[in-house]
């Protein structure tokens, strides 16, 4: 188990529990009561920590190395899934995956950012930072979904679109812009879920939809707290402050009306009970898709466009 800084009290309790269990296993002393007491305290401590998380703590949770990623959710949610590759122009991006699957009898197209599960895979997945071909692959699959009337599910988890030379050469900006433009008019339901990090253009590049949900311990903003700190505070040391200022939690985003739904995570975060998390996510995705499918296609697109057109607050001086 990996414990984050603010989970230290939990780590201590778990250590104690391990020791007590060892003693109990010797069979000399009955430790059952102590074990029960410790488990109770772990539960309570976890609840205390998790019911009062700061923005920065949620950012840390969203990046937890044991957090489930897109392919895990796909595996859990779909009985059958065929991964599809390539953008048909340049290559196959490893930081955005996608394919066609069956979710309780309904064929869906799922796209999503993919981070690596270990050091080697993190490199392979480019830390979830897509190149233009990733966005173009996603668009190709969305167009495929449209052609055959399949709903689109988009899972968002990225620290940003990759800022490299080749990415710029191949039109990172154009790829993201094109996706936004095309997703606006896509004639099938699009349901998006932020499952980890929702950083900037790299996130919204596959994040425009009829219904957007955020898992409880995720963040979504125009910039990461670290970069925001370095630009506005001119130092990397103000990430906690930046995280608060950006108001980037699911709760904030929901209160602004920018996302439609917050999806509860198990106490201890998605990684503490990933299978439970996947079940919850699947249930909410299905519910959202069903609600959109109640509408006519034209109505769906009109509502989608009106929703985004309404985001923003301005005033008139006079």
């Amino acid at each position: 188990m990996v414990f984050l800084e603010f989970e230290k009290p939990l780590e201590k309790l778990y250590e104690q529990l391990e020791k007590v269990k060892e003693v109990g296993d010797d069979g000399v002393v009955d430790m059952d009561a102590t074990i029960q007491e410790l488990e109770g305290r772990i539960k309570q401590t976890r609840r205390d920590i998790y019911s009062n998380l700061s923005g920065w703590q949620r950012v840390q949770l969203s990046r937890h190395p044991e957090r489930p990623y897109t392919l895990y959710y796909i595996e859990q949610m779909c009985r059958k899934f065929v991964e599809l590759h390539g953008d048909r122009y340049y290559g196959d991006d490893k930081a955005i995956v996608g394919g066609i699957g069956n979710m309780d009898g309904q064929t869906v197209v799922i796209i999503g950012h993919q981070k690596g599960v270990n050091t080697k895979m993190r490199q392979y997945r480019n830390f979830g930072m897509a190149n233009p071909e990733g966005y173009r692959k996603a668009l190709r699959l969305m167009k495929l979904a449209e052609r055959f009337g399949f709903p689109v599910i988009s899972l968002i988890d990225t620290p940003g679109a990759f800022p490299g030379i080749e990415a710029e050469e191949r039109g990172q900006a154009e790829a993201i812009a094109r996706n936004l433009f095309e997703m606006a008019q896509l004639r099938v339901p699009i349901v998006c879920a932020v499952i980890g990090e929702g950083a900037s253009g790299g996130a919204i590049g596959i994040g425009l939809g009829d219904h957007v949900m955020m898992l409880e311990n995720t963040w979504y903003s125009v910039i990461s707290p670290e970069s925001c700190s370095s630009i506005l505070w001119r130092s990397w040391d103000y990430k906690e402050k930046a995280a608060e200022a950006l108001k980037l939690t699911a709760e904030d985003m929901h209160s602004f009306g920018i996302v439609e739904e917050i999806v509860k995570e198990p106490h201890g975060g998605a990684h503490s009970a990933p299978d439970e998390m996947a079940k919850t996510l699947k249930r909410q995705l299905k519910k959202a898709i069903a609600a959109i499918q109640e509408k006519s296609v034209d109505q769906m697109i009109e509502d989608r466009i009106n929703k985004y057109a309404a985001i923003g607050q301005v005033t008139h001086a006079k």
Binding site: F181, A184, I204, S221, K247, I258, Y308, A309, I311, Q313
Partner: peptide
């Protein structure tokens, strides 16, 4: 912050 990000979506739709 997020309002700014969403203007990308807004202008594109």
């Amino acid at each position: 912050a997020a309002f700014s990000l969403m203007q990308m979506a807004k202008t594109s739709v």
